[in-house]
């Protein structure tokens, strides 16, 4: 059985996808592999369910999709748009705030515990 991530990870796939596509265009399989590598296997996206996320981002104008035929295979490459870059900046700021808040809460509870 493939291990995916718990419900509190909601929004994380989107953030990671935007981050990866800010560097270069990629197709779905490449994105899934890259997420595993950059997160040191801590986060594993459900491989089949990455496509609705990509398509949703494309529909909202954050990503642009382009079909290419490579070695007889049809690849749909995704790249970040200006709107997507703005969305990434906003989400990463929010994530930074949430993450530092949780870190400080965990620190406090560690110090507070007997």
């Amino acid at each position: 059985m493939v291990q995916t991530n718990p419900p509190f990870m909601s929004g994380v796939p989107e953030l990671l996808i935007l981050r990866l596509l800010a560097h270069r265009e990629m197709y779905g399989y490449e994105i899934v592999k890259a997420v595993r590598v950059v997160t040191a296997e801590a986060i594993s996206l459900g491989e089949g369910v990455i496509y609705p996320v990509l398509h949703g981002l494309e529909k909202n104008g954050a990503l642009k999709a382009k079909r290419k035929t490579v070695n007889g295979r049809t690849r749909v490459y995704y790249s970040l748009t200006t709107k997507g870059q703005r969305r990434f900046d906003r989400l990463s700021g929010e994530w930074g705030r949430v993450s530092s808040g949780i870190q400080s809460a965990l620190g406090v509870s560690e110090h507070a515990s007997p």
Partner: peptide, 20 residues
């Protein structure tokens, strides 16, 4: 097949995305 997940779970994920 296992890595992609069941067709039912994929369908549920797609249908949960209102933009699609």
């Amino acid at each position: 097949r296992a890595a992609l997940g069941s067709e039912r779970s994929i369908a549920a994920a797609v249908l949960a995305e209102p933009a699609l």
